[in-house]
Design a protein around this nucleic acid. Structure first.
Lengths: 210, 210
DNA sequence: GGGCAAACCGCATATTCATGTGAAGCAAGT
DNA sequence: ACTTGCTTCACATGAATATGCGGTTTGCCC
């Protein structure tokens, strides 16, 4: 018997899902609340459910923040996001926060049921459209690595030296130029990047902002 | 009509899939080869297919390497991995390389067909088990970000200040302590991290090594 | 051939950093 | 009660950095 909890503020949707799931002979859904806060209160005094369906847009704490808190306290709970949002940021944030699945609200009741069973057998419920967004995220993070600043090749060399933790003198040695030249390049780099310390250049570079 | 190409070295499996797909009235599968190299040769002289099924373990170039090359030349081709490997590294590498879906070889023919149709409608074919692995990867990369150095809370504060590009003085102001205290903390941080410059601390931190 | 950007170099100065030595208050654990 | 570790602070010195000014050479474009 799979115990299910629901966090959803729309009463109609919540009741519908709860009734449907509770009707199944391998599931039990006794807990349906409309905020993360309520669910946390509930969990303090009851056994945690096996699976939790959670909305993102909720009164009070957002569902995404809720995932983190609930997962930290009760890591064994599997959380499925059930929401209208299909933008990749929300999907990504949810999964990083610890959600095990992500379904859109137009998902049919039998599909929700199937997803929960999926989860029990080690899968992760996710519609092909959502999966696609996740995959897109992989590719984007791969491509967006080059915001192409207008640093010259030599300036980029110097930046790399800084990132490697080298002093001006060592950078000068590495490229066989004088330390004053290094200084000159660094001045120009600072101007172009609108910074004024080694530290900021290194930070920018490692954040992929160069 | 969806044009499909197959790269698979097991002749039995290849023929089976090819015949089945070609039999569908909305699909055409005329191209089935047993290596990436052959497929590249084929693509030079023919129109590219819309969707490509690809194995990982292949004679010559691996399927994962093949994805990258094919996607670079023909970015419009949607590639579905069809393989026996279900370890998260291969899955992850494939998706990063540009695959749009990932199916295990025990997937039934109708499911393969469905997956291809999925792809055409903007989804990403992925079994719940595979999706689970992908999600696990999110959580792992989240956890593995903290190789837990033994920096104290205060020391971590100071590091954050450095990463923000602040000078000692500004860090002192931010936490309302004296600049000499900042120095003291930095000394300890350097000892713990085995470095001896601001630059290295920032680099380590942004690389996730703290 | 003039203009221009990039790479190169030098000198000077104020600020910031790295490092040493030393010490006091406080909380946690032995 | 004693040790240990974290946080706080001080004074000092040499090294490194940030920033100002100046300059030459080279290659490219109009």
């Amino acid at each position: 018997m799979i115990e299910i909890g629901i966090v959803e503020d729309n009463v109609k949707i919540r009741d519908l899902i709860q009734r449907y799931l509770d009707m199944q002979d391998n599931m039990s859904c006794k807990t349906a609340v409309d905020s993360v806060e309520e669910m946390l209160d509930y969990l303090k005094e009851h056994d945690p459910p096996d699976v939790m369906l959670m909305d993102i847009q909720l009164p009070g704490m957002s569902g995404i923040k809720g995932i983190g808190i609930i997962k930290k306290e009760y890591p064994e709970i599997e959380i499925i996001m059930l929401t209208i949002y299909h933008d990749s940021h929300k999907i990504f944030d949810s999964l990083v926060a610890g959600a095990s699945g992500y379904l859109l609200k137009h998902t049919s009741l039998p599909e929700i049921k199937e997803s929960i069973e999926n989860l029990a057998s080690g899968g992760a419920p996710m519609s092909p459209q959502i999966a696609r967004k996740v995959i897109q995220h992989f590719n984007e993070s791969k491509k967006e690595e080059k915001p192409e600043s207008d640093l010259t090749a030599r300036e980029q060399d110097i930046v790399n030296g800084l990132v490697d933790g080298l002093s001006y003198k060592l950078i000068a040695d590495r490229f066989d130029i004088s330390i004053d030249t290094v200084r000159a390049h660094i001045r120009n780099i600072y101007k172009k990047l609108h910074v004024n310390s080694k530290a900021e250049v290194i930070a920018k570079s490692l954040r992929g902002e160069i």
